[in-house]
Simulated assay, not measured.
Amino acid sequence: MYEEIIQNMRKDFDIKPMEVMNLQPLVLAYIGDAVYEMYIRTMLVVKNKSNVNMLHKMSVKYVKAKSQADILHRVNDRLTEDEHDIVRRGRNAKSATVPKHADVTDYRYSTGFEALIGYLYLTNSYERLMEILRLAVEE
């Protein structure tokens, strides 16, 4: 279900893989954050059917910087060379701000994770995107 939504939504916009590679890492992280958040929210709504306050509290466990950094460390050995490069670029990008409740190192790694998600989404790498997203929520 989620994969079809992502594919159909992405079809409305034409961007070539070389253009994606030229995007700034924080731009990749910006779109990756939205894609990941939508995946998490969809998963929680389908599995829990709870009230909005409870859904929000559950989603924070997945989307906070520490959790995303942990996910990246967990899947790191499964990434391709190109994916490692995207993560490195995202991790090393200089952000203007750091959230007050996040460790700087965790925040940088979470930015790398989000950049990877954004890259996979924008390059139409749906199978790989779904593989990474499923690994992200594995217990």
Rank of each mutant, 00 (worst) to 15 (best):
E3D: 09
I5N: 09
I6A: 15
Q7Y: 00
N8P: 01
M9W: 09
M9F: 13
D12G: 15
D12H: 10
D12W: 03
F13L: 06
F13T: 09
D14T: 08
I15C: 09
P17C: 10
M18D: 15
E19Y: 05
E19T: 00
V20P: 01
V20I: 14
M21G: 07
M21S: 14
M21W: 07
N22M: 12
L23F: 14
L23S: 08
L23C: 11
L23N: 06
Q24H: 14
P25S: 06
L26Y: 02
V27T: 13
A29C: 10
A29L: 03
A29Q: 05
I31C: 11
I31P: 09
A34R: 01
V35K: 02
V35F: 05
M38V: 09
I40Q: 04
I40G: 10
I40C: 09
I40K: 00
I40D: 00
R41G: 04
R41V: 04
R41Q: 08
R41E: 12
T42I: 00
T42L: 09
M43I: 09
V45W: 11
V46M: 13
K47D: 15
K49S: 13
K49C: 13
S50N: 11
N51L: 05
N51D: 15
V52I: 12
V52Q: 11
M54D: 12
L55F: 05
H56A: 13
S59W: 06
V60Q: 10
K64R: 14
K64I: 00
A65H: 07
S67W: 10
Q68M: 15
L72A: 08
L72P: 08
R74L: 05
T80M: 03
H84D: 07
D85S: 14
D85A: 15
I86C: 11
V87N: 03
V87E: 06
V87Y: 02
V87Q: 02
R91F: 07
A93R: 06
K94G: 10
K94P: 06
V98G: 07
V98N: 10
V98H: 02
P99S: 08
H101Q: 10
H101N: 15
A102K: 02
D103N: 15
V104Y: 01
V104C: 09
T105N: 12
R108F: 00
Y109G: 06
S110A: 15
T111M: 14
I117M: 13
G118N: 01
G118K: 03
L120E: 10
T123L: 03
T123A: 02
N124I: 03
N124R: 05
Y126M: 11
L129V: 04
E131R: 03
E131M: 12
R134D: 15
L135G: 01
L135F: 11
E138C: 08
